[in-house]
Structures are given as structure tokens and as C-alpha cells.
């Protein structure tokens, strides 16, 4: 099996499964035993401890992992994919534009800003109502609203891009 790159937050490491009982993360070698497995559940023995690991694959490369109740949002890519992303991240536009996605399904109750408007970090851009609660979606950075993709009164699914902000101090 070829090497893959495992990214979690800012950390990226090479991972390679060598055989039935060993794998490697960067230079470090681990001995393991796979006690049970199906598509989204793996029972792994490492250093005489047993870990219950749940894996939900989200799209091509994103994995949502739950180990003993702790959650990891991760990405697993081939080296080529990883490099391609690095290169695109270096381009200016990518670096400065932030897209805000719906954290959960709900109703767009109010849009407080319009396209082209200046926003300060922490200012409310729109209000998403879900489960009878109003959730203020705020600008994460000082900047300009580049685009708003939704209107008041619209119902959105989780993960839909709501608005984008171009960083500007």
C-alpha cells in the first residue's frame, strides 16, 4: 500500500500500513492487532490497550473519527493531492477569502449585512434559526462581505455556504 498523508488541524503526517500487524506514522513504527472491523468501526489493540474507533467518511478525503468518545476531524490524501492543495493555498485569493457554511440545517431568519459591506470581527452577518433557537453567525475576521448566497426566509441544509468574507484590516 502506498503512503498516505494524514492531516488533523495543522498537523500532517505520513502514514503507511506495512502488513497485518505493523504500521508507520512518519518514522515511528507501531505494532497493532485488528480485533474486529466493519466499514465504520474498527477495534484496534495498541500497546495492550483496546481502542474503539468509529469512522465516517465525508466526501472523498474527509474523515470524521471518534476514538473512545473523542472526536477528530481529519483528512487523508495521497501525496499528489496534498501537494496540489498546498500550491492552491499559496495563491492570494484562497488565503484571504473565508467561506462560512451552515453549521446545521435551519432557517435564515435575518440577513444583517449586504454584499460589499465592511464587517468587524464578531459582528453578526446573519441569523440562522434552528430548533427554535436563534444562532448568530458572526464574521470571524475584519473584512468585507464578498458574497451572501442566501436570502431571508430560506431553509438551508447543513454545510451550505452562507456567505464569504475577504480579510481586510
Amino acid at each position: 500500500m502506498s503512503k498516505l498523508i494524514f492531516s488533523c488541524g495543522k498537523e500532517s503526517k505520513f502514514v503507511q500500513i506495512n502488513d497485518d500487524s505493523t504500521f508507520q506514522i512518519d518514522e515511528k513504527k507501531y505494532y497493532f492487532e485488528l480485533l474486529d472491523a466493519n466499514k465504520d468501526f474498527f477495534l484496534i489493540k495498541l500497546n495492550n490497550k483496546i481502542f474503539e474507533v468509529f469512522v465516517q467518511r465525508n466526501g472523498l478525503n474527509n474523515y470524521f473519527i471518534d476514538v473512545n468518545g473523542l472526536k477528530f476531524n481529519t483528512e487523508l490524501t495521497t501525496y499528489l493531492e496534498y501537494r496540489a492543495k498546498e500550491i492552491s493555498m499559496d495563491s492570494d485569493e484562497y488565503k484571504h477569502e473565508i467561506e462560512i457554511k451552515a453549521p446545521m440545517p435551519g432557517l435564515i431568519l435575518k440577513v444583517n449585512k449586504s454584499k460589499g459591506e465592511k464587517v468587524k470581527k464578531g459582528e453578526s452577518v446573519l441569523i440562522l434559526e434552528a430548533m427554535k433557537m436563534e444562532n448568530d453567525l458572526k464574521a470571524g475576521e475584519n473584512g468585507i462581505v464578498k458574497d451572501i448566497f442566501v436570502n431571508e426566509g430560506v431553509t438551508v441544509e447543513k454545510g451550505v455556504t452562507l456567505f464569504s468574507i475577504v480579510k481586510h484590516d
Binding site: 498516505l4 500500513i17 485488528l34 474507533v53 474523515y63 473519527i65 481529519t74
Partner: peptide
């Protein structure tokens, strides 16, 4: 979450799932 074993088992499981 910084426990090495925890992260290692997460990494392994993701790789196993992918394949």
C-alpha cells in the same frame, strides 16, 4: 486528544476505512 496512541489508532482506522 494529544495522546499518541489515540491519534495513532485514529490514523490507522482512517487508512483502513479508505482501503
Amino acid at each position: 486528544k494529544r495522546s499518541d496512541e489515540l491519534k495513532a489508532s485514529a490514523t490507522l482506522a482512517a487508512s483502513l476505512n479508505r482501503n
